[in-house]
Design a protein around this nucleic acid. Structure first.
Lengths: 207, 207
DNA sequence: ATATTGTTTAATAGGTCTATTAAAACGGGT
DNA sequence: ACCCGTTTTAATAGACCTATTAAACAATAT
């Protein structure tokens, strides 16, 4: 056995970084090798194809998102308690993975096959289904009680997702347009987070 | 002179279609020629470079967005009158240009140079500046009057933009995930449009 | 008819990319 | 000291891509 088995890991990390920032198409195995500090053929030696390598990273990131949504179990909570907590934690997770939303959306839109894979995973994943059912129940109960205005659960979900995810999709444009440094970006994200919570909570009030 | 001068136009249309759906990188001049029904060299004969051709389409689409925002002049209106009108018209425009949001965002994020160009255009474009100043004024006045809760104009802008634009960015995923046909998609978009208006108007209420 | 002009074509240079191959280098076990 | 499996390398096949070129073609003006 030779020295590097961590090289396999180094290649994976290099690929992750490059795929996340530049996407599948714009990343070459030569780029990956350069960043991992090895010969281009080694990328193929360890992972055979670029697609394999990408697939590994893509599914990992996809799982990350899914797991995070499920992690926040809202049982025994009212909507107005659960919502800010969810928004906070989801927003915080994306703050630490800023490129994730654009990466996933881009690759899902571009590639039909990956969309199929997402579809399958979401339909067969019992965790997600259970989670959504519980969530749906909670929303309906609150409407029944008159605590919030009538709204489709899917609409509420999309409202929340839109506000959070778009923040990170547009972040590169925003920070570039207004020449923001890292500290300013952090402030901006904090402000957006609380505005989103306010808007959602306020916007759900009945009357 | 020979037969085709509309060929130049046909190439532009083919390029538009392909660039809009697949993006700059994933579109080859050979693809464009094939779609326009001509020899690949003709694409270069009329437009010299692929970048030129793309630039023409990109700026046209960018202008479309800008012009549309400015078109809705909100003078002599209150915010609660102007907002639904703006949301309606902007949403409707994107309904007829569904790929536009993803196209622009993707190409702007990917390409530093294009981001610079956007920056320059938005800073030097007096129309945009005037429009935003007026809009800012209107928001501040309403807050002063107590008609809406205190909110940064930029936050309100981002709230509206997020909700509208994300609808179209996620549309391919949504319609694919739930197997929507064209009619169902139309219904979905209508529902989202009115939900967005409700959420914004409701979410702005003071107390 | 021929010259002229703009249009279209096939061919190709020169580049990049993925994936494979055969050979070289390495390191532990005997 | 040598063997042998693993790792690493350089080289390259085969695709595809952009842009250019020189030659063929068509239509009009002379």
């Amino acid at each position: 056995m030779a020295k590097n088995s961590q090289l396999e890991e180094r290649i994976l990390l290099a690929a992750e970084e490059l795929f996340m920032t530049n996407g599948f198409d714009a990343t070459s195995t030569t780029d990956i090798a350069k960043r991992a500090g090895c010969n281009q053929a080694l990328v193929h030696y360890y992972y055979r194809t670029k697609e394999n390598l990408f697939h590994q990273i893509f599914t990992e990131k996809f799982q990350l998102i899914l797991s995070y949504i499920q992690a926040e179990s809202h049982e025994n909570q009212t909507l107005s308690e659960a919502l800010p907590i969810f928004i906070d934690s989801y927003f915080e997770m994306l703050s630490q993975n800023r490129k994730l939303p654009f990466f996933l959306i881009k690759e899902l839109i571009i590639n039909e096959e990956r969309r199929q894979m997402m579809r399958k995973k979401m339909i067969t994943d019992v965790g997600s289904l259970k989670y959504y059912a519980a969530w749906d129940q909670m929303v309906k109960a609150e409407i029944e009680k008159g605590a919030i205005r009538p709204i489709e659960t899917m609409d509420l979900t999309l409202d929340v997702m839109s506000l959070i995810i778009f923040t990170f999709i547009s972040l590169p444009l925003y920070s570039d347009l207004f020449n923001q440094n890292e500290d300013e970006i952090k402030d901006y994200l904090q402000r957006r987070k609380s505005e989103i919570k306010t808007l959602i909570i306020n916007g759900l009030k009945s009357k």
